[in-house]
Design a protein around this nucleic acid. Structure first.
Lengths: 134, 134
DNA sequence: AATTAAGTTTACGTTAACGTAAAGGTGATG
DNA sequence: CATCACCTTTACGTTAACGTAAACTTAATT
């Protein structure tokens, strides 16, 4: 029985998959946002699917305008030590705050969408009024 | 009958209301994101409620990680000339794209929330298992 | 009349998040 | 064995989005 040997990714594979540069990936490692695993200290980085997932989540955070520091804090929530009750509690608490934030964001987005749809409606009517004018 | 004379805001009023600096507001004007109205070219800026709304929308865009340039482009959609059919069409088209983007964001946020709730559940169980351990 | 509060412009400083270039190591391939 | 292709580190450059400071004006108070 070999020790769980799932697929490993190279840095350029991930870069290509997510449409980012290898520099970006190295930078994320530099600031502690993600990890890499290397055989011999000196040579090529390799990434597990867990690393890949973390990167994916990080990029999601970016798309929503979070700073790398904020993202790191959020991702580190998933890596809490399950034997430490106090840590667990703090994690849950912080997580709840984030969830509330997400709810707020969803609400705001839906409002925005609604407003845009109303404008769309107005513009469509304006267009109709000018029908045939070329 | 006086010409529509609704409330005017000063720069520090708006800054305070939205929790930003006056510098930020001037900067937004500098890059054409918002406008101000002044009596005599030289003296204090004053803002209509329309200006205020535009600023509010801009800040909303910021919270979602859009750049000021992107925000400007989006806000300018609202200021289209209604007599220009082609412009109207382009505006509607671009607006539709933004609406689709918003839908995508909402979807992603809901996924994220779901995942976080699942983690929360797991952590709660871990906590329960350790019940009484202090 | 002098101080205070709020505004102005100009201009240089700062930070996050990378881009980019230089100089070099490895392993596969024609 | 030379040339890719891909990786590495180090380090300086760049841009957006303001912060901050200086020097000044104007209106209202003391």
């Amino acid at each position: 029985m070999t020790t769980k040997e799932s697929k490993l990714y190279s840095i350029s594979e991930l870069a290509h998959e997510f449409g980012i540069s290898t520099r970006t990936i190295r930078y994320y490692e530099e600031v502690g946002l993600i990890n890499s695993h290397r055989e011999k200290e000196t040579l090529p980085r390799t990434y597990t699917s867990r690393d890949r997932t973390r990167l994916k989540l990080a990029l999601r955070g970016k798309r929503f305008g979070f700073s790398l520091a904020e993202i790191k804090e959020m991702l580190d929530l998933y890596d809490v030590d399950p034997t430490e009750k106090e840590q667990l509690r703090r994690t849950i608490e912080l997580g709840d705050k984030r969830i509330a934030e997400i709810d707020e964001m969803i609400k705001e987005l839906e409002e925005t969408k609604q407003e845009m749809l109303e404008f769309r409606q107005k513009f469509m009517e304006m267009l109709k009024e000018k029908e045939g004018t070329s």
